[in-house]
Each structure stands twice: as C-alpha cells, then as structure tokens.
Design a binder for these strands. Structure first.
Lengths: 194, 194
DNA sequence: GTTAGCATGTAAGGAGTTACATGATTTT
DNA sequence: AAAATCATGTAACTCCTTACATGCTAAC
C-alpha cells in the first residue's frame, strides 16, 4: 500500500502531464509551490527511487535515437498504470491530511485536474481546519492579554488577521465553486482575479 | 559553544522571568507561539537535559520545606549565570537566522526584553527577507502565467497578498519603533492596537 | 473509586537538510 | 579554457513526532 506522502503526490501530479527528469521536477516544484520552499536533491532522488520500486513510476533512459546524440545521463520518469491509478485515487479522495498547509497547497495546485465535487470538499475541509485554528488562537489571546505582554499580543493579533484573511479567500473560492456547479459542472479552471 | 537553536532560545527567554518546570514551559510555548504549533515532550525534555548539561540551566527539585508537602516529582528549571549571559547575548545580537518564520516569532515574542536598537534590526532584517520572497514569488508568477494554470496562478496571487500584508505590518512596527526612538529610548512595549 | 489532568521521561522512526562526490554540457 | 548550469546520487546528521512507559493529584 505504501502511503502516498505529500511529495510523492506532487511528483505524481507533475509527471502526469509529461515525463520529466529529477532536475526538472525540482525546478517545477519550486515554481509551483513557491521558490523559497525548494526541496533538496537529497530528498527528491531517494523519493523517486522509492516510487519506482513501488511501481508508480518508470525510469526511462533518454532514447538514443534521432535528434539527440547528446545528454546520456538524464533519466526521465513517467507514470505507470499503477501510478496513474494512484493519482486518480488521490485526486478524487481529498485524502487523509489534505488540510495541512503544505498538503493543501499541493492539492490546490492540482485543481485543474480535480473534479468540482472534490475541489469543494477540499476547500471546505481546509476552511474548517482554519476555523478551528481561529478560535484556538483567539482563546489563547485572552490568556496572553492577562499576562500583559503587548508584543506577544500583537504577534497573535497579526496571526489572527492572517488566518482571517485566508478564510475570506477560501469563502470566495467556495462561493465561486458553488455557483459554477449550479450553472454547469465543467472542470474548467477559472479562479477569480479581480 | 553549542549553537543556540530556536527552541533553546525560547526556553531561555521563558525561564528568565521565573523558574518553570517542563510541563509549564510546554504550555506557555503553546500559548505564546500559537497553540497549533505545540511541541511534544519528546522534543522538550531532551532539550532541557541538554541545556542543563551545557550549563545554561539548573534543575531544582521542588524544595521540601514549609507549605508544600505535596508534589515530589516536579523539576523546576532556572537560568544559570551562563544561561543569563547567553540570553543577553542572543537578545542583543539579532543572531544567525532570526529571519525565519519560527525564529522571528520567538524573537518577536521576547521584544519586551529586547532593546530598541535590536528590535529595529530584527524588524528590518525580517522585512528584507520578506521583500526577497516577494520578488521571488512575483518572478515565478510570470513563469506560471505562461503555463496557463489558473489555479496555480491563484495560489501564487494569494501567497503574494499574504506576504505583502506581512510587509505592511512590519512597516507599521518599524515606523512605530523609529518614532519611539526619536522621542525617548525606553524599552517599553506598546505596540499599536488601533 | 475512577476519570481527568499534571508531570517526567525513553525509543523508534519519519521527513527533511547539508555536505560530499561526480561528471556532462553550454555559455562566455 | 574557464565558469556556469545541468544532472545524479549517497551518507551523515538534525529536528521533530509518535507511541510507549510510569506515576501522582485533584475533582466528581
């Protein structure tokens, strides 16, 4: 079974469009999830190996035909049937921990390949998670206020504001998703950028 | 030398006010840094032991005198002279990596014990770090826009907005800090809560 | 008297980083 | 020809979590 972690999921999603080699995967991961969260090769390559061993990917040595007599050492990774099945499974399941910061971002970046119902489920799950955070933080703000530390209080106030902002963002997306579902149930990706 | 990591620093700052035992430290850490980032005992207790071994803390068995014939198993940790020196050192140094998310939060929560000049240095350092992030993200947004994925673009747009919001917050704090320095150079903690 | 919360610890393991080691290809 | 960038990998290590193991104390 080998649980699908966030990184594996991101790789599955990335390789689904076209075979890629490790170096490219790392760059795209950096581009999609934010460049400052770039991940090291020391994480990536072992993960790719594991996924090949698990039968989710195949490693293809560059084809030595036609155009390119160059570049021998590159290894392109492509989805196997199992890998495709696993990806489809994850894409429709709003899986185990899709509400964590990282997992949510990965899931969201794949919304273009996700059906509307699952998109909605993920957005709502994330919203619920943030709402929980919201009242945990406001509860602890009370306690901090009692201990008269203005800077700590300010830190919490700002944290709260950030979470509130994210909730508002989700509400917009959810609203958008719902109205799109009422009209037609296409998989079109058209998030509002007003 | 034994580099002071974020956790140790947070503990030093916490114990500086009064001796505390492990359980209390964990609760306060949760309260100050946000309850959802609570840290496990499996991290905390070994860290406390390390700090005692390094001579930064002393472990005091509850005094068996007067009032309390109860509670034998509690161990209160207090700062040693070395620990106090280390804390003062860190508090005035805006040390190695004070710009990371976690490190900044810990530093900020100790602003009440930090002098104005160091506060300003930390705020500006953080601001610079976020500004870097800002143009890394906007650069990568361009690349994403080329690959026509509306959801990924929306994720980046929102991320950008969050970072911009945090920069605006820092600007306010920096402005506040500067005007306070011009008037008087007290260590008073009076962050604006309009 | 039993449940909930206080209190301390250890062992195993997960998920990642840094530093190292190597070599090909493209640009200047 | 040197430097930058593309490309792949391993080993050691860090930091943290989970699960376990233990026992006291207060409240219901």
């Amino acid at each position: 079974m080998t649980k699908t972690d966030v990184l594996s999921l991101a790789i599955l999603g990335m390789v689904a469009e076209q075979p890629l080699h490790g170096y490219q995967i790392r760059k795209r991961l950096g581009a999609e999830l934010g460049p400052f969260r770039a991940l090291s090769y020391g994480s990536l390559y072992p993960c790719l190996k594991r996924m090949v061993a698990d039968g989710l990917l195949v490693a293809e040595g560059e084809d030595s035909s036609a155009a390119s007599a160059s570049r021998r050492s590159r290894i392109a990774y492509a989805l196997t049937a199992d890998g495709k099945a696993r990806l489809d499974d994850e894409l429709s399941s709003s899986g185990s921990g899709a509400w964590d910061d990282d997992a949510f971002d990965v899931r969201f970046s794949m919304f273009g390949k996700t059906d509307s119902a699952t998109r909605l489920r993920i957005l709502e799950g994330r919203r619920t998670r943030l709402a929980e955070r919201l009242d945990e933080v406001s509860t602890s703000m009370q306690r901090v206020r009692d201990r008269h530390d203005a800077y700590t209080a300010e830190l919490h106030r700002h944290g709260l504001e950030q979470v509130e902002h994210e909730v508002a963002w989700l509400d917009q997306l959810i609203e958008h998703e719902r109205s799109a579902t009422r009209g037609d149930n296409s998989t079109s990706a058209s998030a509002g950028k007003n």
